[in-house]
Computed example of a mutant assay.
Amino acid sequence: MTDHQEAPGKKQLDRRTVLVATGATVTALGAGGALAVSASAQDNRATPGTGQGAGDGEPCYALTSETTEGPYYIDADKIRRDVTEDQEGIPLRLRLKVIDAESCRPVRNAAVDIWHCNAAGVYSGYEDQGSGGGGPAPTGEPPTGEPPTDGPGGPGGPGGGGGHQEPTDDERYLRGTWRTDRHGYVTFETVFPGWYRGRCVHIHVKVHVDGEWTDAGYEGGHTCHTGQLFFDERSVLLTADVQPYAANTTERTTLDEDTIYPGNGHEGGLLVLDYDHRHIARGVRAALTLGVAPDETHDSTDTPPGATASPSAS
C-alpha cells in the first residue's frame, strides 16, 4: 500500500487481481552474470524536474510521459522478476525507480508490469500473429519502402492498433510483475527486445498503486502510469550484429521515426544504458526513474504523442 490515498468521493475503480505464477523457473543470466552489480545511481537523476526537492534531499522530477498500452497487454498473471523463460537474446537487467513526481518520495509496494517482444519481434500470448502482429516471423530479404501507417505492422493494423486483443495462446515469456521496495526500486531480468515493422525497440510498462499484496498476488488499486521504455540507436545497432537479432530481417523503425516515442529523452522513457560497447552480447544494464502521480489514473485510454498513431498502437 502506498502512502497516497484516493481523494474522498473519487469514483471507485474496478478491482484487478493478479494471480501468482506457479512453477515458474528462475534462470541465471549466464554470460551476463556479471550484471549483478547494481545499476549506476545515474538513474536517480534521469528525469529532473524544475521543482524543489521534498524527499531525502533529492530533486523533484518531471512526470514520465504517458503512452499507449498497445494491443498485447495481459493483466499480469506472472509474479516474478525473471521473465526470460527459454528466450534467447542478450541478457538485460532492467532497474526502475518509481517516485511521486510531486513529493519526490519513493512509491513503495507498487506493482510494476513489463512486457515486450522477443528477438524475432514476437509477443508471447500472440504467437500466431507473428512479428508484432504483422504476419509470420521474418525470413528472407527485408521489405523495402516506408512502413505502413495502416494495415499489418503499422500503427493502425494488427501489429499496431485496433484496441486490445485477447491472447491466442498460453505462452507468457517476457512478461511479469514485481513489487517496488521501500526505496521505490524494482528489478527485472529479461533479454534485450527485438523489433518489428512500424515500431522502434521498446518495453511496455505499467505501475499500479493503492492495491494490496496478498498470497494470491496483487489485488485492487488503480493504474497510475502506462508508458514505454526506449533504447538509443547505438545500442540497437550493436545488437543487430548479434544472434538471434541478426536473423531478424524485418525493416526496423528508428527511435526518431517512431510515432509513439515522445522525443523528450529520459522523461519520455529513454533508458540509461550501461554495457561493454565492444561486447554487448555479454549483457546490458538499463535503468530509469519513473516520475508518477499516484493519485491519478493513466491506463490504456491515454493518447500517444504521434498524431498519426492509433490510441492502441503497440
Rank of each mutant, 00 (worst) to 15 (best):
R199G: 04
V207D: 05
V205F: 02
K206S: 14
W213D: 03
A216D: 15
I203G: 09
G198N: 02
D210C: 03
F230G: 05
G227A: 06
H204P: 10
V201M: 06
H204M: 13
H222C: 04
V201N: 07
T223C: 13
G221R: 00
A216T: 15
G220S: 10
I203P: 11
H202T: 07
L229S: 04
R197N: 08
V205D: 01
H225C: 13
H204C: 01
E212F: 12
G227W: 02
G217H: 11
Y218H: 07
G220F: 00
T214K: 14
G198V: 11
G220E: 00
E219H: 14
V207T: 13
A216K: 14
H208E: 12
C200M: 13
H208G: 10
Y196T: 05
T214C: 03
V207Q: 10
V201Y: 05
G227L: 01
W195D: 08
V207P: 03
A216Q: 15
D215P: 12
G220D: 02
H222Y: 09
T223E: 02
T223G: 00
I203M: 03
T226L: 07
K206P: 08
R199E: 07
H222N: 09
G221D: 00
D210R: 13
V201F: 05
Y196R: 01
F230P: 01
V209T: 03
Q228R: 13
H225N: 13
W195Q: 08
G194E: 03
H204F: 11
D215R: 05
H208I: 06
Y196A: 09
D210E: 15
K206H: 14
G221Y: 00
C224G: 05
Q228E: 13
H208D: 15
H225A: 14
E212Q: 15
H225R: 15
F230S: 03
